[in-house]
Design a binder for these strands. Structure first.
Lengths: 233, 233
DNA sequence: CGGGTCCTTGAGCCGGTTCAATGGTAGTGG
DNA sequence: CCACTACCATTGAACCGGCTCAAGGACCCG
């Protein structure tokens, strides 16, 4: 599906957070102003502290959003999947506050910040919905802050699995293809790769999850929720 | 100043995040629809998981914003001071995602959610600026998430002091009246009250801060920044 | 003056990080 | 097709930071 020509009117993605709130006239405008970008797995899309130039809308693929800390350690603060927006954190700012990298081959639609601001100016519904989108991300982020501050490692790993399931699940609600290394899972959970390893084998021994190779199935989601302290709300 | 009648047109607070973006006509409308609420120090303003009924605009005083975790432990995720907005996290949601309490006697202007949504609908500039406000809070929150996940206790206490200075400073840039207990500072830093105590006396011995009673002066802000790893951006 | 609450400080314990060694797996080139 | 290499995952051992618990002190309020 990555090969489809990028014509907004015929875009297969009805969840696009941009088009969803635009009428036919604006979709024409967007179509004439947008660019299609392709990123390979592992390629970085947004670089912290570089000029915030525009916004991205995920057409296909998976993006991880992270902040860099001391000695280059990363903290993954969220993901973006098809339909999601990237780069809106840079609105009203000179520089990008966060980084983002592709975790699978991805195709993104790009719009210059200036053009997007024109869209916002002319299209209050879009602005309002972006506000709701942002408020919801703030909500998730503040939960994450609390979890990082208060949970034990076992609890944080359980919480990370629940978050990952939400993003990576394929077909069956409780199965996923893990596209991340142990280190990256550690960067979600806020711990070390060794602790992730240890806790995952623990979970497997307790029949909470089931793994082979890169694929994982959550056997006992209720248990996982109980371990993470139901702290995902 | 808490005794001033609450007439929006003559409001002393030119930083009010609501009025700032409204013309005279809308200010009339707001004035006719708003309520003035008074809260005593310690009184809770917003309760997590109760219906999100409206928005508050801080007229005077100081509010702490926090999420509740396991066994009632709190994580303070931010503050609101005069001019700031409270309750916008509930936009697009049924229930309040966070709690908020007054940390000093406060006066708040309140507007029903429904009325506020009407304002947003009719006033795109307001919506746009609230979006920027929200994006900035998201930015701060994601930094906080990383800091909770990665910093040592000493670093987190230094970071908490810098945050507190931003809110509590009075007159001289580096002095503040601490309105919080050690437990509350711990709830900002993401540690225990004992650790806060220990690290504060350490900082005092190292001549980084100076304390007597409830007032604190940061002597060596540069050092404090270095300790926190300049991790506030 | 007495009681309560908060702050400080020390001691001991536990969880989590760090370090290191081993095992697995995938990719590359002969 | 196999062997070599390099990277990643797993597991164990040891160390250390931070939490818990407890006692003593300071301050405030009735």
């Amino acid at each position: 599906m990555d090969k489809t020509p990028a014509i907004c009117h015929t875009c297969w993605n009805k969840d696009c957070s941009l088009l969803k709130h635009c009428n036919s006239e604006w979709i024409d405008f967007i179509n004439s102003k947008k660019y299609a970008f392709y990123y390979k797995k592992g390629q970085q899309v947004i670089f912290e502290r570089t000029p915030a130039a525009g916004l991205y809308f995920i057409y296909s693929g998976m993006i991880k959003i992270f902040k860099t800390g001391l000695n280059g350690r990363q903290q993954i603060v969220g993901f973006a999947k098809p339909g999601d927006i990237l780069g809106h954190r840079g609105l009203g700012k000179e520089l990008n506050p966060i980084s983002a990298s592709a975790i699978s081959d991805s195709r993104l639609c790009y719009i210059d910040k200036q053009v997007f601001e024109e869209l916002l100016d002319k299209n209050p519904t879009l602005t309002y919905n972006l506000l709701l989108y942002c408020a919801d991300e703030l909500y998730r982020s503040e939960i994450l802050t609390r979890n990082m501050a208060q949970l034990s490692v076992r609890e944080k790993v359980a919480d990370a699995l629940i978050r990952m399931l939400d993003i990576f699940k394929n077909g069956d609600e409780y199965s996923m293809e893990i596209l991340l290394s142990r280190q990256e899972i550690a960067d979600i959970a806020g711990t070390t790769k060794e602790q992730v390893s240890k806790n995952l084998t623990e979970f497997r021994k307790e029949a909470i999850i089931d793994m082979n190779g890169k694929s994982m199935r959550v056997v006992d989601i209720e248990r996982l929720h109980r371990i993470s302290g139901k702290n995902n709300e």
